[in-house]
Design a protein around this nucleic acid. Structure first.
Lengths: 272, 272
DNA sequence: TGTCTCGATACTGGTGCGGTATCGAAGCGC
DNA sequence: GCGCTTCGATACCGCACCAGTATCGAGACA
């Protein structure tokens, strides 16, 4: 199966319309129809149901859409990483992750690294399609499914409260005691917010502003709670799961540069 | 980048010889030379060092070899899984894994499943190139890197001893006490045996024969130690890590059939 | 029933892939 | 040092195949 055929099929499967797919691909509709027919003939299965003037996926079509996307991403990744070979690594991380940890990692590695800030879903996509070589993730929150990982740092979590809050003087808190707090809600992987009493936030500046105003509280890893905003009280949450910062990369990827970077991460993980 | 170009490059990179690669691909040498040149021109990087009548990989070439193999495997996987869509799942497992657990899993799933027996390295390869849809692995021994997993069953380990062995009457053992035993050695992922005092074994029939003869002992999961050979004494090893049988599959793969199979596995995991 | 929309088909032209023949350079034996 | 051999690159040619235009046939809709 050729990449061209896969691109054509994925376009039709996503658009469910030969005309629009052809337009998206920048070709005319007839060659697209023929290409899909040929693909079906070569695979020996029907991929699309063209009954009733609508295009629907068959079961085999659904499988090929899913597997084909992954295969196209792998081919793109090969192209991108080959072009980038020799120049620096690209590291995808979330905004708000520990800058202190990152600084130590980059220092230990020594070579130049391009850092890209994005959301968790985008991080995974960038690793898969080769736009990034590695990503910083946080267990147990982020799924590392499909990637190799190396632990960098493990820490507890703290509750960040408005100044003068009733709980601010406590030596530590339990998760149950935070139930009544207006805990800030972050957007999930799908961009949606879960329901809850607290305000919705999209970045850490916004979060800390809301806390300072007494409108929110937040449960965050120690390092972000204590290092960034000394003026806000942060109380250890002793029964919360510990947060592990890990570096993740596609399992087959083992270029010299990436291997050295992971090795540097291992040194930091040991030291911590 | 087209799959054809990737296949050509991988062949040359593996053979380090245009003539042999062309022969392997079933084409003449000149079109192969031209295809590689065109690939290098399109990517904008040099992939091969053709100095001194030898072909060597550049750094970019090494990256493309690794990423290209993965991409080709993904394309092959798409082809195979699409062709197989609708017919039964293929499950890759190691010889000697728990048949009791497998029987329950297949019963719960209800649909026909083709079971393929192979080694651990082959299991991973089959998942990646689409010859299998899922695999049964054993944590913490097998690497599940790059796959999604669902726990099926967790159990302790036992030491299987020759009949009448001095340790056979003990209620339980510690790992330290097994140091002097001639523990059987299995071939690793690379097919090589690690060094050690015990005999080398390749299948469980051979293993149990050697134990019965008093020439070996083995540390195995409870289920294989007690269910299969009631005539050999099996002593719980209380400080050994517990063994978890998991079902693994490529993370993007979520066909209806696989989803149902994983769901069935989840039901069994809960029940256990 | 006329019309519109959509995918399939018919036919044509140009690109590009693969083949044979050959070159130029680098080892290698004598 | 000279020819021989081996290797990848180049030159040139023919054909297959891909894409484009024009058109068809079927189904939805008024």
């Amino acid at each position: 199966m050729e990449t061209r055929e896969l691109r054509y099929f994925v376009a039709v499967a996503e658009e469910r319309h030969f005309g629009r797919a052809a337009q998206r691909l920048g070709i005319a509709q007839p060659p697209l129809s023929r290409a899909i027919q040929q693909l079906e003939r070569r695979l020996g299965v029907t991929l699309l149901d063209r009954a009733n003037r609508t295009v629907a996926l068959t079961e085999a079509g659904a499988v090929l859409l899913c597997e084909g996307r992954a295969a196209l991403a792998a081919v793109e990744a090969a192209t991108r990483r080959t072009r980038r070979a020799g120049s620096g690594l690209v590291l995808a991380m979330k905004a708000g992750a520990s800058t202190e940890l990152l600084r130590r990692l980059l220092d230990t590695y020594g070579e130049p690294v391009e850092v890209v800030l994005c959301g968790i879903a985008e991080q995974a996509r960038m690793l898969r399609d080769g736009r990034a070589d590695a990503a910083l993730l946080h267990l147990p929150f982020d799924a590392t499914t499909g990637f190799d990982t190396q632990a960098l740092h493990t820490e507890g979590q703290v509750v960040v409260l408005p100044p003068g809050h009733a709980l601010a003087d406590r030596p530590h808190l339990l998760t149950a005691e935070t139930a009544a707090l207006p805990l800030a809600r972050w957007p999930g992987p799908d961009g949606e917010f879960v329901d809850g009493p607290g305000p919705q936030v999209r970045d850490s500046a916004q979060l800390y502003e809301l806390i300072a105003l007494g409108r929110a509280a937040a449960i965050v890893p120690e390092s972000s709670g204590t290092h960034l905003h000394r003026d806000l009280p942060a109380v250890p949450l002793i029964d919360a799961p510990t947060v592990t910062t890990v570096i993740a990369w596609p399992p087959h990827s083992r270029s010299r540069a990436l291997a050295a970077f992971v090795h540097a991460a291992g040194l930091i993980g040991q030291a911590a």
